[in-house]
Design a protein around this nucleic acid. Structure first.
Length: 564
RNA sequence: CGGGGUGUGGCGCAGCCUGGUUAGCGCGCCUGCUUUGGGAGCAGGAGGUCGACGGUUCAAAUCCGUCCACCCCGACCA
């Protein structure tokens, strides 16, 4: 391809609304162009990168016994009602009506469609296991798109769905897919980190995410400084500490705490540490007021709470809701009130003689103990893990960092096959629901993450495997006959030899060409100039290295092969 | 949806507070000449309903109101 003919423009300055590095560089390099919030066009350079990523994914999925197919982006809304995910996805679903007034939606994911298809394709255990996958456009009406390609409303995704006769077989495929994913990121030249993840609206049991560590990432990762434990903070757990001394249980005692409402105020006022108090937080779970309680030094992980409650919407209760439920904000506890669902974090059993609210203004109780003084409906881990806490696996110190989620694996189990009736006849003649897994990779986001991870002050530094071109042939002084002839000849030869070459044949100054080459980030740059030609040579430079080497014309191909 | 910000040629911005000639600047773009190893020089030129609508005024990019779009933080998010 000739740079003079390349569709698109490079920009010296980034658009003002581009904040993240990948967004700035991709726009400046003429790879993407924004159409509206969360909607981007891919220009030829960007599209080449995306297609390379796509091909790597395709090869690895095929190697893992996946079979590519294509499902429709447009789906009947009613299959979402069948699984109830019309509610869990809510407004994220792009919906519309056809001319016959039937409700349709643009697929944000395809579990429903593939499970329906499984009803047809899977009849016997002999048809299992199977793993259809597709690379297709997904649509999600995100509350807020952001960061260029990092979070958009229309995006290309590889989504695979595995089908099994039993959970053991799913486990095996799951492990195999983990390896396939590692291969994919490796081949894309990216270092990734696998973390335990929440399964969210997809549902299911085990779930893992692949992360590209980056400050611009939306996810917080909690990981251990000593062992290999790593988890999305949404899901991370930690070893909850016990107080050093076991006290004998003391009798309940009411104390006056005028105006003291927060844990800090109360603990300060009574001269006790925060981990000797119990915190009470009120939530509205799909309209029902629920009561969460946790030791005063810890915070509630609202996602864990939401999963426990199995609700669609979870918000902090409003003042009115709190009052209507007969609770006293600032002085509430599970000691006393009834008729409200209480979810307790298991930390309330670590320690004793806690300070809790007295359920009336300006008063607290000392020496509250579970279960002597109160009961709870559910006792479970709903605590938020934070850096500095202890690893749940080895006790080492937990650290935190940010990452971009570029892949997600789920063990769905039989959630979808049961709801949609995808069953098979097993060896013993019994009918069973198909056991399923699903596995996604966002291609555009992966591309953006690659830029986040591979750039310098001059521009993008593409890993070779996903670079739009391999070689940037830079002809300086294009009005010099010898230069332009040599450049044309070299371009033909290299292209014929199978190299992917971009020839900068523009009548521009050296500076412009060098800067564009750096910005676009092609791995190798070959400079053809009168100066070099006098010695019968050209100059070859790696994008990620400072020094160039002078190479005789006849050795160029060989040299390039060695350097790629 | 809550908070904050921005809308002026393709890109980056000034002008707005304090209304008043043909709305400016840098980059980019076009033509010509000169240049040619890290974003060249000179000369000439094209390109703007100042986000939209309404209002105030003799007069609005500028003041007032409504709306829209986009960005950031939060909520939300396989």
């Amino acid at each position: 391809m000739l740079v003079s003919k390349l569709f698109g423009q490079t920009l010296r300055e980034a658009p003002a609304d581009a904040d993240t590095i990948s967004h700035q560089l991709l726009v400046r390099a003429g790879m993407i162009h924004q159409v509206a919030a969360g909607l981007y066009s891919y220009l030829p350079l960007g599209w080449r990168v995306l297609r390379k990523i796509e091909q790597i994914i395709r090869e690895e999925m095929d190697a893992a016994d996946g079979q590519e197919l294509l499902l429709p982006a447009l789906q009947p809304f009613e299959i979402w009602e069948e699984t109830g995910r019309d509610l869990t996805f809510g407004q994220t679903l792009f919906t519309m009506k056809d001319r016959r007034d039937r409700k349709l939606c643009l697929g944000p994911t395809h579990e429903e469609v593939i499970t329906k298809l499984a009803r047809f394709a899977i009849r016997s255990y002999r048809d299992l296991p199977a793993m259809p996958y597709q690379i297709q456009t997904k649509f999600r009406d995100e509350p807020r798109s952001r960061g260029g390609l990092l979070r958009v409303r229309e995006f290309l995704m590889k989504d695979a769905y595995s089908m099994h006769a039993n959970a053991e077989d799913l486990d095996q495929t799951y492990e195999r897919l983990i390896q396939a994913y590692k291969n994919i990121y490796d081949r894309c030249g990216l270092s990734s980190l696998m973390v335990e993840a929440d399964s969210g609206a997809i549902g299911g049991k085990d779930s893992h995410e692949f992360m590209i560590i980056a400050e611009t990432g939306e996810d917080e990762i909690i990981y251990c400084s000593k062992c290999n434990y790593a988890a999305n903070s949404e899901r991370a757990s930690f070893a909850k500490n016990k107080p050093d001394t076991e006290e004998s249980l003391l009798p309940l005692e009411e104390v006056s705490t005028p105006g003291k409402k927060t844990i800090e105020e109360v603990a300060d006022f009574l001269g006790v540490p925060k981990n000797k108090t119990l915190k009470a937080i009120f939530y509205s779970a799909d309209g029902e007021v629920v009561f969460a309680t946790i030791r005063g030094d810890l915070e509630v992980n609202e996602l864990k709470l939401k999963n426990t409650l199995k609700c669609v919407n979870l918000d902090l209760a409003t003042d009115d809701e709190v009052k209507a439920a007969g609770l006293v904000a600032g002085s509430a506890s599970a000691v006393g009130p009834s008729g409200i669902k209480v979810i307790a974090d298991d930390s309330i059993t670590l320690g004793n003689n806690f300070v809790v609210g007295a359920n009336k203004p300006d008063a607290h109780l000392k020496n509250a103990n579970y279960p002597r003084d109160f009961n709870v409906d559910t006792m479970i881990d709903i605590a938020l893990a934070q850096a500095g806490y202890k690893c749940p696996k080895c006790g080492g110190e937990l650290l935190s960092t940010r990452g971009i989620e570029v892949g997600h694996l789920f063990k769905l189990g039989i959630i979808f096959s049961e709801k949609l009736g995808a069953a098979f006849l097993d060896q013993d003649g019994s009918q069973k629901p198909v056991v399923m897994g699903c596995y996604g990779i966002g291609l555009g986001r992966l591309l953006a993450a690659a830029v986040e991870q591979n750039h310098d002050e001059k521009g993008i530094v593409w890993p070779r495997s996903i670079a739009p071109y391999e070689i940037y042939l830079c002809a300086l002084s294009t009005n010099d006959e010898q230069v332009s002839q040599t450049a044309d000849k070299l371009y033909s030869e290299l292209t014929l030899a199978g190299f992917e070459v971009l020839l900068d044949d523009r009548d521009e100054s050296a500076g412009i060409k060098f800067n564009d080459a750096d910005l676009i980030g092609i791995p190798l740059r070959v400079v053809i100039s009168p100066r070099n030609l006098k010695q019968g040579s050209v100059e070859i430079k790696k994008r990620n290295e400072k020094e160039a080497v002078l190479v005789p014309l006849e050795e160029v191909q060989e040299k390039l092969r060695g350097m790629l």
